[in-house]
C-alpha cells in the first residue's frame, strides 16, 4: 500500500494547480493541517469560485483587516450561517447571470466551516441549504474541537479526547460521547455527492473537490484537518497523524455518489490498531488500555459497517 502512496506522491506537484489562492502571510499556527487543506481545496476549485466562510480559525487567520490572504472572492458573516450565506450567494449569482447582469461564466459557490460551525451551531443552516438543493459545495474542516476559542469539545470531538470543556480527570475519560457521524447525516439528505477527505491524501482530496465541483447541485466534503495545537502533538506530525487516522480506520476515506458508497483506494485492507494513532497525541495520553480497547471495538464495528455499505451499495458498473 505504501508504494502506491509513494508513487502518487512522485507525481503530485505536476498534477496540482500551481496557483496559490490563499496567500502566504496567513496567521495559522505552525504546522496547521487545516490551512493546508484549505490551500489544497482552493487549488482544486480554481479561480471561478466564491467562498462563504464561517467564523473560526480559517476566518481569523486569513482576513485581518485591512488585509486578506484570499485570492478568490470571499465573504464572512457569522459563525453558524456559512451554508445559508453560500446559498444566498449562489441564488444571487444565478439570478444575475440569468438576467445578463454579470459575465456569463460558471462560478462555484463554496461554504466552509469547522466542526463546530458545521456539526453544532451551523447544523440547521447546513441542513437547510443542502435540502434546498443549491448548486454549492460545503466543506467541513474538522479538527475535532473548538480550536479557535481554545480547544473546547464539539460534537465532532472523538470519544476519550481531552478538551478544555471535557477534560480528562480523575473521574472522567474526557469526551464521553462518540463523534457525530456528519457524513452519514449528509448522505441522509439525499444529496448527489458526499465524501470524506484528508489533506494527508492530497490527490484523493483534490479529486473529490473536483468531483464535487463538477456536480450540479449540493455536495458535502468532510475534511479531517489535523490540529497540532489542539491535539497536543508536534507540528511536524500533522500530516502523518492524518495518515494514521485513515490507516487505523478512525477516519475512513470514502465517497457516496447518489447513494452509492465507494471506499477510497487509499484505504488499507487491514487497519492498524488505533493505539498507534492515539500514542503521539497529548489529548489521548490519559487513556487506559481498557478504554483504548473500547474505542478500538467501536472503530472496528463502524469500519465494518462502512465496508458492508461499500459492498452492497456500490454502483452497478463497479
Amino acid at each position: 500500500m505504501m508504494n502506491i502512496v509513494e508513487n502518487f506522491d512522485l507525481f503530485a506537484p505536476r498534477l496540482i494547480n500551481k496557483q496559490e489562492l490563499i496567500s502566504s502571510g496567513h496567521r495559522a499556527c505552525s504546522g496547521c493541517a487545516e490551512v493546508l487543506a484549505v490551500r489544497l481545496m482552493c487549488k482544486a476549485l480554481g479561480e471561478n469560485t466564491v467562498i462563504a466562510s464561517a467564523t473560526g480559525c480559517m476566518e481569523i487567520i486569513s482576513s485581518m483587516f485591512p488585509t486578506t490572504a484570499w485570492q478568490v472572492p470571499w465573504i464572512h458573516v457569522a459563525f453558524e450561517n456559512a451554508a445559508a450565506v453560500a446559498s444566498g450567494v449562489e441564488a444571487g449569482l444565478k439570478a444575475l447571470r440569468k438576467k445578463g447582469k454579470i459575465d456569463d461564466r460558471y462560478v462555484k459557490v463554496v461554504g466552509m466551516a469547522g466542526d463546530g460551525g458545521t456539526m453544532d451551531i451551523g447544523f440547521q443552516a447546513l441542513s437547510g441549504a443542502m435540502e434546498r438543493g443549491h448548486d454549492m459545495i460545503y466543506v467541513c474542516f474538522d479538527n475535532e474541537a473548538y480550536m479557535n476559542t481554545g480547544i473546547q469539545r464539539s460534537s465532532g470531538t472523538p470519544m476519550g479526547a481531552s478538551t478544555t470543556t471535557a477534560p480528562a480527570g480523575k473521574v472522567s475519560i474526557g469526551q464521553k460521547t462518540w463523534k457525530k457521524n456528519m457524513p452519514e447525516i449528509m448522505v441522509a439528505h439525499g444529496i448527489p455527492y458526499v465524501a470524506t477527505a484528508c489533506p494527508s491524501y492530497p490527490l484523493d482530496f483534490i479529486r473529490k473537490v473536483e468531483k464535487a465541483k463538477s456536480i450540479q447541485g449540493p455536495s458535502y466534503i468532510h475534511c479531517f484537518s489535523m490540529c497540532p495545537t489542539g491535539w497536543r502533538s508536534p507540528s511536524h506530525t500533522a500530516v502523518s497523524m492524518g495518515r494514521l487516522a485513515v490507516e487505523t480506520g478512525v477516519f475512513p476515506l470514502y465517497e457516496v455518489e447518489n447513494g452509492h458508497y465507494r471506499l477510497s483506494p487509499d484505504m488499507p485492507k487491514k487497519l492498524k490498531p488505533v493505539k498507534s494513532y492515539f500514542k503521539p497525541q497529548g489529548r489521548f495520553r490519559h487513556l487506559t488500555p481498557d478504554q483504548i480497547e473500547m474505542i478500538q471495538e467501536k472503530v472496528t464495528v463502524e469500519f465494518g459497517k462502512l465496508v458492508e455499505k461499500a459492498k452492497f451499495l456500490k454502483t452497478g458498473n463497479e
Binding site: 478568490v72 472572492p73 470571499w74
Partner: peptide
C-alpha cells in the same frame, strides 16, 4: 462577490 474582481467581505 465575483471572480472578475476578487474581494474579501467581512474581514475581521
Amino acid at each position: 462577490l465575483h471572480p472578475s474582481k476578487p474581494v474579501t467581505m467581512g474581514a475581521f
